[in-house]
């Protein structure tokens, strides 16, 4: 690989984006890369939009990803994918869990949840993967494993061998949940 690899992970507070970025970081480090992550949390625990930026290369300076430069956008939620789309570079890859979580302005009726998100995503990224990660996570044993299912899908787009993913998962998740998460990863990787 040449240049810096920019991977943007977005979702809603509480969906497990940070753990996902940690696992990915371990894999990239094991692959011999320098890694930087920037995450903004705090208020985000309370169901707000969250964004984790991960960059890896031989040498990385800034931990933040510039608009229009993300190689891959991994979104845990449909609306958040739309929100973060301007960060994706032309020809970048998009993986989206098709879950829809209603933000408060939609619940209170002051805004509408767009009905055409899938079309809008596909019009910009024709080969976007819009996937039912939630069902796969349930199949693995818990809805909480959506993040690792999505990592499984992401893993197909990155040049790291399967083993290093499995090792990173073992290292990063709680010991009790290792088996479920390995299963979730396998289901995502397909």
């Amino acid at each position: 690989m040449t240049g810096v690899n920019n991977i943007l992970i977005v979702g809603v507070g509480g969906q497990g984006t940070i753990l996902a970025s940690r696992i990915l970081a371990e894999v990239a480090i094991a692959g011999g890369y320098q890694v930087k992550i920037s995450e903004i949390h705090g208020m985000s625990q309370r169901g707000g939009s969250v964004m984790t930026q991960l960059r890896f290369a031989d040498e990385v300076f800034s931990p933040v990803i510039e608009p229009s430069t993300a190689d891959i956008l991994l979104s845990f939620e449909m609306l958040e994918a739309l929100r973060a789309l301007p960060y994706l570079k032309e020809g970048g890859e998009l993986i989206v869990s098709k879950q829809e979580l209603l933000p408060m302005p939609v619940i209170t009726g002051t805004a509408q949840y767009p009905a055409d998100i899938a079309e809008r995503l596909l019009s910009v990224v024709p080969d976007a993967q819009i996937v039912d990660a939630l069902s796969l996570a349930k199949k693995a044993g818990t809805v909480k494993a959506v993040n690792v299912v999505l990592l499984g899908m992401l893993s197909r787009h990155l040049p790291f061998d399967e083993n290093s993913w499995l090792q990173a998962i073992r290292k990063c998740v709680k010991p009790k949940t290792v088996e479920i998460n390995l299963k979730a990863f396998a289901l995502g990787r397909g």
Binding site: V12, G13, M43, S44, Q45, R46, G47, G48, S49, E66, P67, S68, L79, E80, L82, R83, P86, P103, M104, P105, V106, A111, Q112, Y113, P114
Partner: peptide
């Protein structure tokens, strides 16, 4: 500078009480 296109029709997702 790459300008972020205005995200006008995208509803905001402010933090909320759980």
């Amino acid at each position: 500078q790459e300008m972020l296109p205005a995200a006008a029709e995208i509803p905001a997702r402010p933090p909320v009480m759980c």
